[in-house]
Nucleic acid binder design. Sequence first.
DNA 1: CTTGAAAAGAACTGCCT
DNA 2: AGGCAGTTCTTTTCAAG
Lengths: 152, 152
Amino acid sequence: MTDLDGLDRNILAELARDARQSTQALARKFGVSQPVAWRRVKRLQEAGVIAGRRLALDADKLGYGVTVFLGVKLATKGRVSLQDFETAVSAIPEVQTVEHVLGLYDYRLRVVARDIPDFERILRRRIMTLPGAGEVEANVLLSEERRPGPLG
Amino acid sequence: MTDLDGLDRNILAELARDARQSTQALARKFGVSQPVAWRRVKRLQEAGVIAGRRLALDADKLGYGVTVFLGVKLATKGRVSLQDFETAVSAIPEVQTVEHVLGLYDYRLRVVARDIPDFERILRRRIMTLPGAGEVEANVLLSEERRPGPLG
DNA sequence: CTTGAAAAGAACTGCCT
DNA sequence: AGGCAGTTCTTTTCAAG
């Protein structure tokens, strides 16, 4: 863990909202000089607190109108099967996130599809055939709100 | 939906990997001039395909070592209760995403906490007391892999 | 820790094929 | 649509209070 003062948190909060703003804009917002804001950002990057900058893509505009969350239980939980499962699932392009979790399910997958028939195809031909896949539960995304989190 | 050619898809794939690279770097990678790469990016932004650029933060380095996914069933599903629930849940800083879903659960929440005792506190005092909250299921995140998705 | 300045690089514009 | 050349702005480094 890294320790951050108020300025660091303010900067993170602003950049979390829009990672494209200039260090000068940040500097003005928080009443410091531009090089100071720049050093803070650099420091946060080097410390790994800022792990990278990613695009927020609009799945709908890309033709992917359906997002489904799948909870997957493995039928066989031998040592190899976790790795086998992860490797196989990584080869499915429609899978956006693979979360290894502890609880009622073993994995949670975020899957996108063009429409419901497309999702059925992915489910039957790609998901159900995954090595070790047992019970599968699905939740269809209706709407989603992302929030900055407690970080700052 | 927007239609994209190969260059658009290549650019999106590269920017999805690292949103910080320059249009010149993109131009070189795909054998076009810098202004062309720049115009493509601008067009994708204006079309809303690129919705924004966000920071990838390292929760661990910020002192949040525990991430939990909660599936929540509402006890009462009147018209108002959805809105009430969403408003109340939005006031909990540790909630990073609120997903309204269709299926076994009504909402999926991504919650971060400093450690397990901290998570218990959030669960008991904030989550269980949400208006309309019924059954709650939890999955603790062990590891996570994010992938570009099928877009490009 | 700040300011101010300068060099390098990236973003943006206009004009041409 | 794509390319070239130039202008503007941001980032990055540095000297100095």
